[in-house]
C-alpha cells in the first residue's frame, strides 16, 4: 500500500499502557522503563491462545446446547428447556420478539463469534490481504458483541433467584447454563487474545 516504515522496522516498541516508546530489544521479555509493564510487539502467543480458547469455547458450546439450561416448574408442571427448545417454546407460545432476542443472544452471537474469530485467525495466519479494513471492523464487532453473550446466563441467574414461589412457580438452573457460561468466557478470552494487529501484518510485502 505504502512504504511507511513499521515500528519494528525502526527497532522501536511502544508501551501499550503509558505510551512510552523505547528501543526494541530482542530476544527476551522487555518491560517498560517507565511503568514496568511487559512490552510486547504482538500479544503473547496470540494465535495459539485464540485458537485454543476458541476450540475450548466451541467444545463447551455443545453440552450448553444439548443439556437443559433451566427448569421452570409451575403448579407441578415441570419443564426442562434447552436453549433451542426454549426459543421454540417462546415462539410457539406467542412471544416471537422474546424468541428472537434469546435466539440472537444465545445462538446467533456465539456462532457468529466462532465463525468470525475462526475466519480472522485463518486469514491472519495466511497473511491474507483480503478486505483488511472490513476484517478489522468485524473484530471490533465481535468485541462489542461479547458483552451481550452473557444475557442468557444472567436471565437464568436472575430468574433462579427471583422466582421461588413454592409449587406455584419455580425456576432452577441446570448444568447447561454452566457450559454456556464457559462458552461465553472462552470466546471472550479468545477474542481478547486475538491481536488485531495481525490483520495488518505483512501488508507491506504485498
Amino acid at each position: 500500500m505504502n512504504h511507511l516504515p513499521r515500528a519494528s522496522e525502526l527497532g522501536l516498541i511502544h508501551c501499550h499502557v503509558c505510551g512510552m516508546v523505547c528501543c526494541h530489544v530482542s530476544p527476551g521479555e522487555a518491560t517498560c522503563p517507565r511503568c514496568g509493564v511487559v512490552l510486547r510487539e504482538r500479544k503473547l502467543a496470540s494465535y495459539a491462545r485464540s485458537w485454543a480458547l476458541l476450540v475450548a469455547g466451541f467444545l463447551f458450546y455443545i453440552p450448553a446446547n444439548v443439556l437443559p439450561i433451566m427448569r421452570t416448574a409451575s403448579l407441578g408442571n415441570v419443564d426442562d428447556n434447552t436453549i433451542l427448545s426454549g426459543v421454540i417454546e417462546l415462539w410457539v407460545r406467542g412471544s416471537p420478539g422474546l424468541a428472537i432476542i434469546v435466539f440472537t443472544a444465545s445462538i446467533l452471537v456465539p456462532m457468529t463469534k466462532f465463525f468470525v474469530l475462526a475466519a480472522l485467525l485463518v486469514s491472519a495466519r495466511h497473511n491474507s490481504d483480503w478486505a483488511r479494513p472490513q476484517r478489522a471492523k468485524l473484530y471490533r464487532l465481535v468485541e462489542i458483541m461479547g458483552y451481550w453473550s452473557m444475557l442468557d446466563v444472567f436471565i437464568v441467574a436472575l430468574l433462579a433467584t427471583l422466582v421461588h414461589f413454592g409449587i406455584f412457580s419455580l425456576v432452577a438452573p441446570l448444568p447447561g447454563v454452566i457450559f454456556f457460561g464457559l462458552t461465553v468466557v472462552m470466546t471472550m478470552l479468545a477474542s481478547t487474545s486475538f491481536d488485531p494487529r495481525m490483520i495488518w501484518d505483512d501488508e507491506r510485502q504485498r
Binding site: 512510552m20 523505547c22 528501543c23 527476551g28 517507565r34 495459539a48 475450548a56
Partner: peptide
C-alpha cells in the same frame, strides 16, 4: 531512546491448549 528492562523468562505457549 530509553532501553526497556529485559528479563529472561520462558513462556510455554502450548500450555494454553490444555484449556480446549
Amino acid at each position: 531512546l530509553p532501553r526497556p528492562l529485559v528479563r529472561h523468562r520462558r513462556v510455554d505457549t502450548w500450555l494454553i491448549w490444555l484449556v480446549p
